[in-house]
């Protein structure tokens, strides 16, 4: 639903970077890998948290 607050594996707070990642790599046309490098998300455990995430708030919102 919302992006997980921390990386499941190492515990680094990855959700801080979600907004910018979404803006630049998902909605924009930048290379996700370069955006992650830019954001300082180095480890592959943290990178997969953002790369594999899909926001579902908009999908569930009508079914309150």
């Amino acid at each position: 639903m919302m992006v997980p607050v921390r990386c499941f594996t190492c515990g680094s707070v990855v959700s801080r970077h979600w907004g910018e990642f979404q803006e630049r790599a998902r909605e924009g046309d930048e290379d996700p890998s370069e955006v992650l490098d830019d954001l300082g998300v180095e480890r592959h455990c943290c990178r997969r948290m953002l790369v594999s995430h899909r926001d579902l708030v908009d999908v569930v919102a009508p079914y309150q």
Binding site: M2, V3, V5, V13, S15, R16, W18, G19, D55, V57, A61, Q64
Partner: peptide, 14 residues
């Protein structure tokens, strides 16, 4: 420690 950790996205009337 950080001010930009999203908790939950709220829609109209939430």
């Amino acid at each position: 420690a950080d001010d930009d950790v999203p908790i939950i996205e709220l829609k109209e009337n939430q």
